[in-house]
Design a protein around this nucleic acid. Structure first.
Length: 216
DNA sequence: TGCCAGGCCGGGT
DNA sequence: ACCCGGCATGGC
């Protein structure tokens, strides 16, 4: 919690997810896989310009057309397929417009999301937290590097679930907290993992605390 | 010019 | 259970 409050004081609230609608968040979660967010925004702008920023529409249009529109996001062929699979899942489960708030339902939904082609653990959890507002802590590359640099884990390839539980078991289970904390970790990484970043200015009291590449 | 960015899948060991 | 190659663009 001290890390969280320090980061919040330093950077301020990040207001994630950087998208407006619930559907836009889901679409962005798939498009941003291993890809710079700036490129994802270009792809989303294309979809919006063609009035296709909608799961129902994406589930309907043909894959090559979709691929052409999301080209800037990279891996456009495979992501077109993933996006359609994701859109079809949500169209198929219309009840997800206003899903039950209990923990049991969330765990079940998580398992179902993981069955969808193109949705892995991070994407599933991003959707659960940022689009559907369930208290799940999202683990990404920045989270891993943070944990490693702070010696919370032995290596950056510790199992996803172990890292997720590390946060979830040691923090109050709160959607706003998980939302902001993860966004702040990403902000921290983007700001201080750059080669020319000034580590002395890092709000956390470590000299070389965050490197762009993990030390093996 | 090459390296990197908010992963995931499928096949191999 | 891990490890690896493939997938692709735009920015610095």
């Amino acid at each position: 919690m001290r890390v969280y409050t320090t980061l919040l004081d330093y950077f301020g609230a990040q207001g994630w997810w950087p998208g407006e609608s619930r559907e836009e968040i889901i679409i962005g979660a798939v498009l941003t896989q291993n890809t710079n967010w700036a490129n994802v925004e270009k792809a989303i702008d294309n979809l919006r310009a063609h009035r296709l920023l909608s799961l129902k529409k994406i589930a309907t249009i043909d894959e090559p057309t979709l691929a052409r529109l999301i080209r800037p996001a990279g891996y456009f062929n495979i992501k077109a397929r993933r996006l359609k699979a994701t859109a079809e899942f949500f169209v198929r489960n219309k009840n997800l417009k206003n899903p039950p708030r209990n923990h049991r339902f969330m765990l079940n939904l998580r398992d179902e999301l993981l069955q969808v082609y193109g949705i892995g653990k991070e994407t599933a959890d991003s959707i659960l937290l940022y689009a559907l507002m369930y208290p799940v802590f999202v683990v990404d590359a920045y989270t891993r590097r943070f944990c490693f640099r702070h010696r919370l884990i032995e290596s950056t390839r510790v199992d996803y679930e172990d890292i997720r539980l590390l946060f979830e078991d040691n923090l109050p289970r709160d959607v706003e907290l998980f939302n902001e904390f993860h966004a702040l970790l990403v902000r921290l990484g983007k700001t201080f993992c750059r080669p020319k970043a000034l580590c002395e200015e890092c709000p956390l009291n470590r000299r070389v605390f965050f490197l762009s590449k993990p030390i093996a």
